[in-house]
Design a protein around this nucleic acid. Structure first.
Lengths: 244, 244
DNA sequence: AACTATTTGTTCGTATGTATG
DNA sequence: GCATACATACGAACAAATAGT
């Protein structure tokens, strides 16, 4: 007896998601391209617009498209970024599946490796960017969000320098997560991120000494982690206060 | 001039997603609970069913709920897992944003650390599970999928033993990604995963020597990585063949 | 085995909001 | 100001799945 697959196995919206995703991954639609309008898609797939819209919501959440309203609007293909990864981590954190001490443990282990790799890939361009990022840390604080961005810029550049997109994604995800928590708790920026905090790291990396860079980063990660754990405590207390 | 926020900022479905997500995260709906039916939700929110359904699609993709059809069906809250993380990595891989050699580099670095931590947390229960997983590797192969599961079981247990959910998520995600690729290429299982491949690791971990465990894992990761890179090559070739 | 109730899945028609030219 | 081309949203209806009677 041959095995037959059910004719209808998936939701229509899922079928549409798969087809559109494949088209995007195969490069038939490239980043920036506009997908056909909802009406056109519903005609091409011979389905209702509601089904198309459900599919577009899924693709949006997965990070494949963004939509804009209006005459020149529509669904536009986006360059897939680490953002979804970051969101997934954030959800796991919010659901208490991952704790700050655990993240701290991971960071203390792998950020020195990132610094180590970065020290092996110093170029004049990267050196310039690192110096500028370091100087920008002393800029007057306009908003907390902007300040956090400036104080994490060095980590981003080092991650890029590591030459490994995986490390880059990981760093960006963890920085994004940290930013969310910091913004929620809103601590004193000067205590959380003293200016020039990353100077020893940058100097070690620019000296081209991988082990020195790793060591400097490790010390920074340990120090910063202590602050972060304090902040998480405040965060949890704030949350439980809001709930009661 | 005071700054006013636009009254209507988000899509209705987004608003619903946020509210439901908050409810779930606050524990008002727990894993296994059934959300109100689509009709009830649309009445409670005073919106159309289509809007509710778009919200449910988003929550589904994010891993918060699953839906079943029928009289006892509905949207059920799920325990948030690493699955979304895994999917995010898979998408990034499929979109050529992360390569196998990059993943390989990261694994060779952090899997030894996982083994190191595991060696510090050996209990009789874990020891038993590791031994059983090792024996199961020699079972006759029924299906590729099942075989891959058996050959990765040791990694999963070690990740659990590390006591760090972040490492656990990372390991599970990467194993899931590896499995997808392996299944796609369908190589000879005996070549890819010789039985007993993980014996030195298990022995080192059970001896309780962290550095020995890390060393054994490193050697395994390096060896396995070579296979994986070959497999990726085959995968890419297969894909480009399918496209032409 | 047939019927019924409940719930998701899907469609269509219509109306409204939004941005461009 | 107005037409146009989009996304956004609603409501009513029917189809399909799934359990209980």
């Amino acid at each position: 007896m041959p095995k037959f697959k059910p004719v209808k196995q998936y939701r229509i919206s899922e079928e549409i998601v798969e087809q559109l995703k494949q088209s995007i991954l195969l490069g038939e639609f490239k980043a920036g391209d506009k997908l056909p309008s909802e009406r056109e898609l519903s005609e091409q797939f011979h389905v209702s617009r509601a089904a198309v819209r459900e599919a577009l919501r899924s693709l949006e959440i997965s990070g494949f498209i963004t939509t804009r309203q209006g005459a020149t609007g529509g669904a536009f293909v986006t360059d897939l970024t680490f953002q979804n990864l970051s969101n997934a981590f954030l959800d796991l954190f919010l659901a208490n599946k991952i704790s700050i001490p655990e993240i701290y443990q991971v960071r203390v282990f792998f950020e020195p490796e990132v610094a180590r790799l970065a020290a092996k890939n110093v170029t004049p361009e990267y050196a310039e960017r690192l110096k500028q990022a370091l100087e920008a840390e002393s800029d007057p604080i306009k908003s907390l969000s902007e300040d956090v961005d400036k104080k994490t810029a060095v980590h981003f550049i080092l991650a890029e320098m590591s030459g490994n997109h995986f490390y880059e994604s990981l760093v960006k995800s963890l920085m994004g997560l940290t930013k969310k928590i910091v913004e929620e708790v809103n601590p004193d920026p000067h205590v959380m991120h003293p200016a020039g905090m990353h100077r020893p790291i940058v100097e070690a990396v620019l000296s081209g000494d991988p082990e020195k860079a790793a060591k400097a980063m490790e010390e920074h990660a340990i120090e910063f982690g202590k602050n972060l754990i304090k902040i998480e405590k405040a965060y949890r207390e704030k949350k439980s206060f809001q709930m009661s």
